[in-house]
């Protein structure tokens, strides 16, 4: 079984080497675990750092946004015939020890497995209070729209099987994709599972969502959740 870790990186020169080194230490029986870093047109030295440390990567010539970068990874996974693709942030927030749990979730027959900070109170780091309000609101909105409970809809630590890889190659929003894609999957009756994970605070650099952008983020994501959920089933 071949598993690909998709690592989107935008201006992550300080974190990316550590992230990849931690990943390289993960060994799971009967599983070939590969990774690919998608350098999303970074303006800092990310590219040089990737070259110098011999890290397998794809250089996007201009900045596409997180969605476009991750979609490039899914396309790569499809071309190279991977069975499972796992999204993993380049900033060191995600802990590689949960990769095994995510893969097990897929092997149990789920189509999509999300690493959640909030299920069973797994994580010591739970983001700022204001962001938690936002996450709870999105979670409630998804519950209303799809009748399913997702505790961490914005989590970027997620695994999917081949069916979903194929779907994502043709259907993935360029910006703020996490909650949106989740609703698309739930509406089309794919099996989605959440497992508890612990996340770290970002070690270096800034999050992609700044204070000013967060209102825009909430409006856009809410609207797109509503529009996606009104879509009739089997639209994708």
């Amino acid at each position: 079984m071949k598993v690909l870790m998709i690592i989107p990186a935008y201006n992550e020169e300080k974190n990316i080497v550590n992230t990849v080194n931690n990943l390289r230490q993960v060994k799971i029986d009967d599983i070939i675990l590969d990774y690919i870093v998608i350098n999303d047109g970074s303006q800092d030295g990310t590219r040089d750092v990737l070259e110098k440390n011999n890290i397998k990567h794809i250089d996007l010539p201009c900045n596409l946004g997180i969605g476009g970068a991750v979609q490039t990874g899914y396309e790569y996974a499809l071309y190279n015939n991977y069975d499972i693709a796992i999204q993993f942030d380049g900033d060191g927030q995600h802990n590689p020890k949960y990769i095994k749990d995510l893969i097990e979730g897929i092997l149990l027959g789920n189509d999509f497995v999300i690493g959640s900070r909030f299920i069973n109170n797994a994580s010591t780091f739970k983001s700022t209070a204001i962001r938690r309000v936002g996450i709870n609101f999105l979670s409630l909105l998804i519950k209303i729209c799809t009748n399913k409970k997702i505790t961490d809809p914005t989590s970027g630590f997620r695994a999917c099987n081949k069916k979903i890889i194929k779907l994502f190659v043709t259907n993935y929003p360029l910006d703020y994709p996490e909650p949106d894609t989740l609703v698309m999957l739930l509406k089309n009756n794919y099996k989605v599972l959440e497992i508890p994970v612990d996340m770290n605070e970002r070690s270096n650099g800034k999050s992609s969502i700044t204070a000013l952008k967060s209102i825009y983020y909430m409006i856009k994501v809410s609207l797109s959740i509503i529009i996606t959920s009104i879509d009739k089933k089997g639209d994708v």
């Binding site: 929003p173 360029l174 910006d175 409006i219 856009k220 609207l223 797109s224 529009i227 009104i230 879509d231």
Partner: peptide, 19 residues
């Protein structure tokens, strides 16, 4: 505007100012 977004003829991002 809503139907155009739904048919994926325009991106939601560009529909927002109109909304």
């Amino acid at each position: 505007v809503y139907t155009t977004v739904r048919k994926k003829k325009i991106l939601l991002k560009y529909a927002l100012p109109w909304f």
